[in-house]
């Protein structure tokens, strides 16, 4: 009995520091975001007034917020789909195909992930430049006349430019993740498939994909979270929502409202929406991708 008690105490003291830190730095601030979303507050003074759900009501009438919401959803959807396809393809090729310079390519693909967003935004500002950018230059060669598209200057193109940057940046990371789980698949499975006369593409869909499904599910949550975060960093460094909200995503909009527009409570209301949205989306994705786990 006494031993049991002593063990309980030991476990308690082991877990306590982490739990306390978790509450101070995660749970408490999150609750605070929810609480502050019910207040009107400028961000500096002590004058806070409780307004209930008014911030949310205003939010529903805010066209700029919906614009940023649309942009974010577009980024999440496109970046996830395209990156997933590219990363899986590259990983499959690098793991399965017999080719030289495998490690070299692995490093090359991974490099964009090491670069900071500020560097990436500077690089892509040069590539997407209208007057003497690389992209317009290449397009001019193929078109046979001077192409002058303002990639960052129109609401129609700016968000796709961001998507391209984010995909370029993310492929290496996910590729390395898929490669690691792909190389864990026993070689014997592929050998017997070869003997049965199954081609490499069918091998990929019937052997590789089902066996790394758990890994893909995990990365889908990563995609959602990192698209939301990375798009904010990119917008902050590259366009700051220009032109006229065309590249605004909801974290950058929240930041603007909370810290430069003097409407902190309103910003926190956006925070609550972002929080709920990303949690909800992750849960939905998790539910619809649930399969029986196949083991080898």
């Amino acid at each position: 009995m006494d031993k049991q008690k002593g063990r309980g105490r030991f476990v308690f003291f082991c877990v306590a520091p982490a739990t306390i830190l978790f509450f101070i730095f995660v749970v408490f601030p999150t609750i605070n975001v929810f609480r502050m979303s019910l207040y009107k507050w400028g961000g500096f003074s002590a004058n806070k007034s409780f307004v209930g759900l008014e911030n949310f009501k205003n939010l529903m009438k805010d066209a700029k917020f919906f614009q940023s919401f649309q942009n974010t959803v577009l980024i999440i959807a496109l970046v996830t789909m395209v990156t997933l396809i590219f990363a899986l393809t590259f990983a499959g090729i690098l793991v399965r195909a017999k080719m030289k310079f495998k490690n070299f390519f692995r490093v090359i693909f991974y490099i964009p992930n090491i670069l900071s967003m500020v560097v990436i935004s500077a690089v892509f500002s040069a590539i997407l430049d209208q007057r003497n950018g690389l992209l317009n230059g290449i397009l001019s060669i193929f078109a046979g006349k001077e192409v002058s598209i303002s990639w960052l200057g129109s609401q129609k193109t700016v968000i796709y430019s961001m998507v391209i940057v984010l995909i370029w940046q993310a492929i290496g990371y996910y590729m390395v993740m898929y490669m690691s789980s792909m190389s864990a698949i026993p070689e014997s499975l592929y050998e017997s498939a070869d003997l049965e006369g199954v081609g490499p593409i069918k091998q990929f869909f019937t052997i590789t994909l089902p066996l790394i499904w758990v890994n893909i599910r995990t990365t889908l949550s990563f995609f959602i979270i990192s698209s939301i975060n990375m798009s904010f960093l990119l917008v902050q460094a590259m366009t700051q929502g220009n032109p006229d909200g065309g590249s605004e995503v909801f974290l950058s909009y929240m930041y603007k409202q909370a810290y430069t527009n003097g409407s902190y409570g309103y910003g926190m209301a956006i925070g609550v929406i972002v929080f709920t949205f990303s949690f909800g989306l992750s849960a939905v994705i998790n539910a619809v991708t649930k399969r029986d786990v196949i083991e080898f």
Binding site: D129, W151, M238, N242
Partner: peptide, 8 residues
Amino acid sequence: GSVVGNAN
């Protein structure tokens, strides 16, 4: 023509 694209 290129002003808006660089107005950031």
